[in-house]
Write a protein that binds this DNA or RNA. Sequence first.
DNA 1: GATGAATGAGTATTCATTCAT
DNA 2: TATGAATGAATACTCATTCAT
Lengths: 216, 216, 216, 216
Amino acid sequence: MGIKERKQRERERRRQQIIVAAKRVFTEKGFNKATIEDIARNAELSPGTLYLYFKNKEELYASLSLRILQYLAIRVEHVKNETNLGPLEKMDALMTAMYDVYEFDPLILINMFHLQSSETIKNLSPKLLDELNDLTRKSIGVIADLFEDGINKDFFSDQHPMALADIFWSMFSGVVLLETSKHALNEDNNFLKETLETAFEIFSRGITRNPKRNAG
Amino acid sequence: MGIKERKQRERERRRQQIIVAAKRVFTEKGFNKATIEDIARNAELSPGTLYLYFKNKEELYASLSLRILQYLAIRVEHVKNETNLGPLEKMDALMTAMYDVYEFDPLILINMFHLQSSETIKNLSPKLLDELNDLTRKSIGVIADLFEDGINKDFFSDQHPMALADIFWSMFSGVVLLETSKHALNEDNNFLKETLETAFEIFSRGITRNPKRNAG
Amino acid sequence: MGIKERKQRERERRRQQIIVAAKRVFTEKGFNKATIEDIARNAELSPGTLYLYFKNKEELYASLSLRILQYLAIRVEHVKNETNLGPLEKMDALMTAMYDVYEFDPLILINMFHLQSSETIKNLSPKLLDELNDLTRKSIGVIADLFEDGINKDFFSDQHPMALADIFWSMFSGVVLLETSKHALNEDNNFLKETLETAFEIFSRGITRNPKRNAG
Amino acid sequence: MGIKERKQRERERRRQQIIVAAKRVFTEKGFNKATIEDIARNAELSPGTLYLYFKNKEELYASLSLRILQYLAIRVEHVKNETNLGPLEKMDALMTAMYDVYEFDPLILINMFHLQSSETIKNLSPKLLDELNDLTRKSIGVIADLFEDGINKDFFSDQHPMALADIFWSMFSGVVLLETSKHALNEDNNFLKETLETAFEIFSRGITRNPKRNAG
DNA sequence: GATGAATGAGTATTCATTCAT
DNA sequence: TATGAATGAATACTCATTCAT
């Protein structure tokens, strides 16, 4: 048992070692230009070993996203559960959470959005795709709940909560992608934090029912 | 003379024939999985012929984006020049324009956003990249002008116009990408128009100075 | 008839136009890197037109050699027919002739030797190859006759005239190729004339029967 | 340790396996018509494997020449070091050496001369070209030393040793190429040995100072 | 004859994946 | 488990040649 456990832990350590290397290489070269050998060398393992831990290159690529999505899920869930916060305060907490998610691992977050572009989706295994989507949808669902709550309590204007959540998520990913592409183009991109804050601020004001706000 | 002209027209027709085929194939398979032979077959031409009209695969791919960016530039420029419209009305006109751009060629628009993802940027020729960016930046700049005008006239809250334009553009691309990825996942995505309208509506309300609005 | 003749002359002019262009391009780029379109552009004609005058690329390439081989044949024949010259004087005349051949068109001469290398031979049409070989063999044969005459008159040591002619020809082509490869390597190659003279001088002394020479 | 050594040896065996196949195929078809797949098939390996041992087609091609040039260098160096031989005897030894070089690998020797033709030079990587040239020049330099020694000792007529060496080398390569092109033309070429001997004999007599010879 | 647009066969090279050790 | 040598499928691009005008 102790042995089994140790082996299990050892195995998990190897997995992380590979994931870390993969992150570095994919981030530097992009999915297509990154080779398995690059990653293996970076992980100080042999190419063959990678296949003992990941079914194939795409699976490895996608596995990078899982962790950040899990973090996202935890964070938004936590916001939802903060029962002592009102809808507006939860919005603030949500925005902070989103920025934390971005900071948790910006490179992977971008990879993930890229992953969602239609080209990549076509080449992913259905199982993996489902997993990714479930995690994403779950978080967006929780976000929708927050909006719904706000609407019910008349803080937010009366719109479809899921639509709001989608737009919120779109705005988040749109800003992240744009700011990152600026980075890739060597323009300065130190303003992502400000841009994101401004974006969320606009969004927040946009959905807030004015009387309430004035009152608040 | 007449002959020269006819040849010119014939040549342009071929170009379009190739572009149409490329669009179909790139859209179906994505840049990497699409082969020149696929496109040639689709265009009912030989692979060699494609190279009489486009220098290489990337050039062909990017040429798809140019047209829609030109359309975008024209549309936003036109909104700016509508001198008889006030800032709020111009916002409405801008949103309509953006949706028209989406409808002008949704598939290519998505390709284009994908193009902007960092992976692709790394693999694009600098010249091409510049061209694409100049066109994009130009339009975003005009959008910023609209916001600036609105701010000067006290319709919009006092924020950096370029930042607002970036967020506007991010929201647009974010929504388009999200809705399209839903499509790729076979969820129904007929709601893009509504989502986009809602998104713009929220954005609009978010940036509008309340007193004015109440007055307006 | 006059018309026919004029047409014939016109046709010959075109042929030369192409040959001149081909020479330029083949010399600059070598056989493989030179394209038919390069040559056509250089000749201010269309690619298709070249095929009205030459069966294919290789035929065109080889046709360059014919002229110089014809010049060679004439020159050596002329030396042979100089009945008022003795064997040693004929050798001098022969060497002068060979150098003239080199100067007649150095670039083509080198192409020709290259042509004789086994790789190219395999890809030439038998008919053309025969033509080239007949011309070469014919000249080498005449050279052999000169040696034979010298041997018979006891000027030259008693060796197989054809073998001597082959060696003479080998030496000539060897020197030309070596000096030219030096040129290609950007070493100075202005010494070809001297090298060739020295080579011929050595050859000449090498085959001359000493007693005779002492007497002579 | 033993394992490492065995692997090393195994690797060298593979390399030879490829070189042997390459020699066969290049010799049969020439550089351009020979395909990597041909060679791979001939070596009973996959195309990809060839690239584990050689960077590209040209490198593989040129690697064939290196061995023979190394052999040449060793042989001429050895002749030079035979301190108990006089100049004339060294000439004999040199000629024997040259013929041995030819016999060491006739096909490759011809490839090598072909390699030196200007067309090929243009398409070779500079690094490779340098390597080949250094080796060649080195041997020709040693040959020049032999001539210089002979001149100093008054055995040979007073000419520039390097020029003599170039001519000697030219004659060698010229004879080899001519005789081989005869072979390619299906004429019998069994006389190369004789032709080469005759050529060297003529050369030798041509450079030898007569008084000495008479004395000798 | 002349054109030049179209053809499509031909190939070096890469790299994800496997499997004998 | 781990290795890494071997695999071989896959693909952009070129260019000699043709042929409708």
